[in-house]
Design a protein around this nucleic acid. Sequence first.
DNA 1: CTGAAAGCGCTTACAG
DNA 2: CTGAAAGCGCTTACAG
Lengths: 333, 333
Amino acid sequence: MKDVAARAGVGLKTVSRVVNGEPGVTPDTVRRVQESIDALGFRRNDSARVLRKGRTASIGLVLEDLADPFYGPMSRAVEEAARAHGALLIHGSSAEEPDREQELVLALCARRVDGLVIVPASDDHRYLEPEIAAGVATVFVDRPAGRIDADVVLSDSFSGARDGVAHLIAHGHRRIGFIGDRPRIHTATERLRGYRTAMAEAGLRVDDSWVALGSTEPERVRATACAMLDGAGQPPVTALFCGNNRVTVTVVRVLNGRVRPVALVGFDDFELADLLSPGVTVIAQDAAQLGRTASERLFRRLDGASDAPSHFLLPTRLIPRGSGELPPPADAL
Amino acid sequence: MKDVAARAGVGLKTVSRVVNGEPGVTPDTVRRVQESIDALGFRRNDSARVLRKGRTASIGLVLEDLADPFYGPMSRAVEEAARAHGALLIHGSSAEEPDREQELVLALCARRVDGLVIVPASDDHRYLEPEIAAGVATVFVDRPAGRIDADVVLSDSFSGARDGVAHLIAHGHRRIGFIGDRPRIHTATERLRGYRTAMAEAGLRVDDSWVALGSTEPERVRATACAMLDGAGQPPVTALFCGNNRVTVTVVRVLNGRVRPVALVGFDDFELADLLSPGVTVIAQDAAQLGRTASERLFRRLDGASDAPSHFLLPTRLIPRGSGELPPPADAL
DNA sequence: CTGAAAGCGCTTACAG
DNA sequence: CTGAAAGCGCTTACAG
């Protein structure tokens, strides 16, 4: 910038004015400065700008896994909001590890992002208190914040799961298995609670062997599903409820290799669910809406809103496609 | 930092040393400074650091659409590489619009990212020349750079498409349709070239109505596929080759609603392709490897490599699953 | 309409 | 082992 000013024979401030399109510069001066900028290949350094202005016009998005299709529409919604507000998006995965989440979030804070959208892997976010106090707008999405009071946007996991399990019960099932994500994850325990509530409301017993929380790795899900379907020494389950899309996809593969039909309802919709045979009945959540709601909240805070942290609960929707409407086999009743 | 130094009764430089874990500070001093940092809730401002050091330890990733599942594994691979090198990832979508690509890329350059990984939407990247000259390492992936010489990592679209179409021909098809992405997109025209080559090598004629490049929007793909399958006044095609995963998914939906079986091979693998009936035969490319190769190249440049721009061409793999092995109907020969 | 001075929060190069 | 000075490249607040 110094060089540009020297070459154009003007002051630093005038170059700054031209670069930022500020008014109050003679057209002729503008031309001279512009020529000088082009000749020298000048490119404004936003780091220096940030240092003076305070705001970086960037927000951080931390989620579990960039490649999980569930987060695709959510990321896009956050990106669109950022773009609409002239901000850039810094994106990172926690790989579901609390330490990695914290490391990433603090790195983003050191870069002075204006705000954060976090799908938490950790259950203790007290490490964020100084950052929030220092003005970093923070919104948690998909799962709640741990041990701090903050804005949160969730899908209604409990009601969704209860609806899904009630649907299976309405179609005649009495022995229903639940396969979900690790118990540390809030959505996993909420969906399990929905399952238990639906069963209790129907006056049905839940055998311990029908419930499995754990890693969503295909190997583990496959083994779990097979155990429930083969019913070690007792009557097997006639229906399965899956806690998220990763589990559902693996269970669909398992069922595909079996002759006896098993009813299935999965939490989360996924592409092509309608083209499988049977189509997979799901509890759909609106991932894009999750992202939109969170970003809206975030940018409202950046615009100065200082009301108490809010909690949004987005409804889910049951989409019947065939797999959830299969009756139990006649000999299983 | 000034406050921390004052409170601890030391100089600025000593605080800097403690914050960065540099050696040459008495344990006792370290303790005093650390206590001061904690008490004041000090958080280092990386913007200032960047301003002095020159490097930002961040890289930009620009692609078409954050929510497209094809880019998930690629993004993850780039993120892993960034993480391994202590860099953060700034992520943005071009929405396939050249202007938006340029705007985003230049914004990333103004933030002084150390490097860029770009899936280009534009076909003219001369706007990047000053940036590259100024030292921004740049690698293009999935599609080549336009009008500049730069590092490029591609899948072998031509050979992949030729293999796929030859596969259909080997299974008896003579009238094969090609539905691809917009002609502006390099992969679309390369795959079309593969199609034409395979047809020519088999001595087969290509009717103009069998080839359609254009938007991958479901409505347009659906209409195009129906026109080819109904053969306006002439014998219909007995097989379709789809130019990418978005097209394939829509065509699978179209075929699902028809009685007459039609053979299908799609470029790009996708989740659950094997569970459809019939399973969808695809030309798979390794999206994660695309990301890994590009990042490796990028970080090698950041480590000082200054050899001529290189061009990588990654092989594709035909995965037969049923849809590509369907013979033409007996009355169609 | 234009510019000189001070400062954002760090690090570099140097001296003690 | 420790620190004062200068500077990274901008913008702010002010004066002309």
